[in-house]
Write a protein that binds this DNA or RNA. Structure first.
Lengths: 193, 193
DNA sequence: GTGTTTGTTGATTGACGAGTCAATAAACAT
DNA sequence: ATGTTTATTGACTCGTCAATCAACAAACAC
């Protein structure tokens, strides 16, 4: 049965399963065997491909953030004008793939872990920096002086909405959260004018 | 050495140590022995007083939320007028004891766990409901129609600031977060007028 | 002072889980 | 054909940890 060229497929399956299992457990207290089985293989294979639990989970967090980054980039492509840029970033942040409960829950778990694990911390720094600079690029022409503060507050609002979505039992389409955020943005920009 | 009337003292010490250790580990993967030793006693004692890991951690989360609740109540005492009420709630949320990094980190861990553990979930619901109703009491006279949405957004902002504070390496006095939040409140209320 | 309650721990148990190893097998190279 | 690389797993090791037990000691009751 063993075919060749399985590595990327199996790695992807493991990462996907890891995200799902971590989200479900709400912590990294998830056994390798469990993740491996969810990905349709035996435990030693997971070790074979990732070398250890740590590396697998790190890959999982990296995948979440890089998916998010890709979505933002795609949403930003071709768009011009500050306000349109802001809308694009917000739209990507609340779009279905990134706002799925299982993704958010896993994201949160990694977020918490970042306090102690340097690798996670670095990844999170990148996320924060990118979000901030994306928001800032749109805000600076519109909000002038207060742009930095506004960007930090918008970032906190997005994170706060994520946090709350992770806990909601309703299937949480992100749509309301997104609308609320846009309304606030209008408010902030209106006042800065 | 055994004295009498130790129960409340030991329980309090265990809860305090549990919060500190959970915050430091960034997860519930903390051994009973570790917590017990941090609290100055042997592992079996922790079991003796709490019956198990689950119960100890539940007590720890309850302690965090009840401390927070007490701070809000104290801050609210004697205050009158909607805006003053809002300021009191915000002030309590960012006051030193509740905004200490170790408390926030532990809070976050419990928050994430709430997805899966019904006991934690219930406790969190109480927190959310209380915060919301406190904010709403202040907002309704000032913001009218939009009060509900405003309360939800303010709640998300507070949670978002907590989330970010948990990760900051600077000692995080919460003062800036608080100021930013108040500024936004002014903005929201000014626009609703 | 004898008995009960409360406090306390060293030693042990039993389970579980990360990581390793040896073995098997398909694909590929030559 | 033969050797090498890639894929795959069952069985095992070794450590860790929650929970229990048995025992000892101080305080209190009477």
């Amino acid at each position: 049965m063993p075919k060749v060229g399985q590595e990327p497929i199996r790695k992807a399956a493991l990462v996907k399963a890891a995200i799902a299992e971590v989200a479900q457990a709400g912590s990294l207290e998830v056994t390798m065997a469990r993740v491996a089985r969810a990905a349709g293989m035996s435990a030693p294979l997971a070790h074979h491909y990732f070398g250890g639990k740590e590396a697998l989970f790190e890959a999982a967090m990296r995948a979440i953030l890089s998916d998010y980054g890709a979505a933002v980039r795609a949403s930003l492509a071709g768009v011009q004008g500050p306000r349109a840029r802001l809308d694009a970033v917000i739209g990507a942040s609340f779009s279905a793939p990134n706002f799925a409960p299982e993704v958010i829950a896993a994201w949160l778990v990694f977020y918490v872990q970042a306090r102690e694990r340097p690798a996670f911390r670095r990844l999170l720094r990148v996320y924060h920096a990118r979000l901030r600079s994306n928001l800032l690029a749109g805000l600076r022409p519109l909000a002038g002086e207060g742009a930095e503060a506004a960007a930090d507050m918008l970032g906190a609002m997005i994170d706060g909405q994520y946090l709350r979505a992770a806990l909601s039992d309703r299937p949480a389409t992100g749509a309301e959260a997104e609308a609320a955020l846009r309304a606030h943005l209008d408010l902030m920009l209106g006042a800065a004018r």
